[in-house]
Amino acid sequence: MAIKSNGLRGPAPSERPHPNERRNRQGIRIEPGSSGELQNRLATFSALVKHEPGVLSKVSGLFSRRQFNIESLTVGPTENENNARITLVVNENDTGIIQVKRQLAKLLPVIAVEELSRDAIERELCLIKIKNHFAQGDSLEELKELVDKNGIEILDIGDGMVTIEVRGGQRDIDDTIEMFDQFGIEEIARTGTVALERGSKKTT
């Protein structure tokens, strides 16, 4: 087949007026020359959902197909046996955070979803298993001192391993993990953040 020219009449692209203004990747108009990049931030959402099969796969499927950056997701029963509460921490810019909320709200089993206030109560639980050099004598005393000072509980000592439990905000747990890193961490299990609004404010 031949390569031939067909087309329409009219001025070439270079002969047309064209605006210099631009939008950023979120489709927001920006000053010419600026990158207009939005900063990500952590946002915690609480979603009240129907307690029925398949809800979690609908929520997690939404996050994977829309490429939302998810830090943690927890789910559990609530005061109402028909409902479950999903707590989500996402790392997104403001456009993404609004999208997360609006897309979640569209899922039929999602009854309500809100981003929590900055002063909401957020807690996570973490189990850390540490290598055995604490297991005897003076070093055990050293460990006990360390945990007492930091509000940590020892759950199990023996068989060459010590397992401790840490509770707190996400950052508290990150700090604790960093503190024990020097002793040699063998395993970690974290629950992800759960959260409720403070005082009389309703969560969702």
């Binding site: 087309g7 329409l8 009449r9 692209p13 047309r16 064209h18």
Partner: peptide, 15 residues
């Protein structure tokens, strides 16, 4: 860019 649509093959080469 929408405003820089091509009307011919030649325009496409220019873009």
């Amino acid at each position: 860019a929408n405003g820089l649509f091509a009307l011919t093959e030649k325009h496409l080469e220019e873009l």
